[in-house]
Design a protein around this nucleic acid. Structure first.
Length: 417
DNA sequence: CGTCCACGTCTAC
DNA sequence: TAGACCTGGACGG
């Protein structure tokens, strides 16, 4: 669940599920967790949450007992405690009955209800963490979604920072400035503006102002960033929402939040809306290469001048559902068929269909944008795919040629459970 | 069965 | 700038 929108949706989930719920006793931790114990015990307390960028803070608030004046029993909390969570790659909150406690529920808050329900922090890979009596991590910048003005201001006033010497796609993952942006968001944001991912960040950012000129403006003319794509193709991002890069770092994540619980609620087990929302990340036909930190950058068109030498496209076979699918009730999942193996029928292309958006007259994205664009995959062949893949250890590794992977969905609907 | 990949930090050479 | 830290799903053999 891990980018800004998911963290925020997690906080909304906690507030919605725990409204009016009374929790009691100690906060318990799984045996395997290496995160700190949470020294909080209380006869009756409530839980609320807030988010900031890629962190969520839970507040445990003791309730005053009627027989107030009665001293709080020793060892019982009488003051609120705040716990700050980071989700790593797989964290999320879940509120369920005791007997449905999810696997990998590492921190648990027990309700006082008869059939006890438990709010738990679930984290399969355990890259997430929490800090009792914690505060927002000091080195993280303002939230891209809810501290927009200060987020802009901080970047505009620190453009000389060497962090901006990096390619824009890598700078976007720097949480000191872009608290909340993650791997899928950077791809979606740069794609909307047609900004080559490996262009120096400062080049893209210099000239931007602290105030958002686009605020309140409907479709300001583009003259936005002169996204001159080196390949000559102009394409000024028609259709796109107006705004500069910093504004999209704010609006694009909010779109995900507005998709509703789908982006998060593990119970939904239905990420089809989210998948349909993606225009670039993991989308068939887009290119992808590893950045200097080994993270997969999805994009279309020109990679830009700072593209890692020798970096190759990562593997990736076919993928289907994006994330977990916690079952629960029947849940029929919507079948969002995306391009079914179109390639298959096309002769040619065998092994890895090369889908590197070759010139192939980039059809004007013009209308038809979103919805439609996702299925059209005209097997651009050309450049046979070389199977060369390297492991992470980069190192020399020729095989240049754009190669790509294709991927098409396989499973879906799938019934059962 | 084994390899590769995943929404992210951390810290050690 | 590499690993380290983890589990598990999708694929390939």
């Amino acid at each position: 669940m891990p980018e800004g929108p998911e963290l925020h949706l997690a906080s909304l989930y906690v507030n919605a599920m725990c409204a009016g719920v009374v929790f009691t006793g100690p906060v318990t931790k799984s045996e395997v967790s290496k995160s700190p114990d949470v020294p909080f015990t209380c006869e009756a307390y409530r839980i609320s949450a807030t988010s900031r960028g890629k962190e969520v803070k839970l507040t445990l608030t003791p309730m005053k007992s009627d027989d107030s004046k009665n001293r709080v029993k020793p060892g019982q909390a009488d003051q609120p405690m705040e716990i700050v969570f980071r989700f790593g790659m797989s964290g999320y909150f879940r509120f369920a009955t005791e007997d449905e406690l999810p696997k990998h529920a590492h921190l648990r808050f027990h309700s006082k209800e008869k059939p006890c329900r438990v709010l738990s922090f679930v984290d399969t890979r355990r890259f997430g963490s929490w800090q009792p009596n914690g505060t927002w991590q000091p080195d993280r910048g303002p939230c891209i979604m809810f501290e927009y003005e200060s987020f802009r201001e901080k970047i505009v006033s620190h453009l000389s920072d060497r962090a901006f010497d990096r390619p824009i796609c890598e700078a976007l993952l720097n949480q000191k400035y872009f608290n909340g942006i993650g791997n899928y968001l950077r791809a979606e944001i740069l794609f909307r503006l047609n900004i080559p991912p490996f262009v120096p960040a400062r080049t893209i950012l210099e000239g931007l102002k602290s105030e958002d000129v686009f605020e309140n403006k409907k479709a300001v003319n583009n003259e936005i960033i002169d996204t001159k794509t080196s390949d000559g193709s102009k394409q000024k991002q028609v259709e796109g929402e107006p705004g500069d890069l910093l504004r999209l770092c704010h609006t694009v994540p909010l779109e995900v939040v507005n998709l509703g619980g789908k982006g998060y609620d593990p119970q939904k087990a239905d990420y089809s809306d989210f998948r349909a929302w993606l225009q670039c990340y993991f989308v068939d036909g887009m290119q992808s290469i590893r950045d200097h930190n080994g993270r997969t950058m999805w994009f279309k068109g020109d990679p830009g001048p700072m593209r890692p030498k020798d970096s190759k496209a990562p593997k990736a076979k076919k993928r289907a559902e994006k994330e977990d699918d916690h079952d629960y009730t029947e849940k029929k999942k919507a079948v969002r068929s995306r391009s079914v193996n179109a390639s298959k029928k096309k002769n040619a292309i065998k092994r890895e269909t090369v889908t590197n958006t070759p010139k192939k007259e980039k059809d004007a994205p013009s209308n038809e944008t979103v919805s439609k664009r996702r299925r059209e995959v005209n097997t651009p062949q050309q450049e046979r795919g070389e199977t060369a893949r390297r492991k992470k250890n980069s190192s020399a590794e020729p095989t240049t040629g754009p190669q790509r992977r294709s991927e098409r969905v396989t499973r879906q609907n799938s019934t059962h459970k």
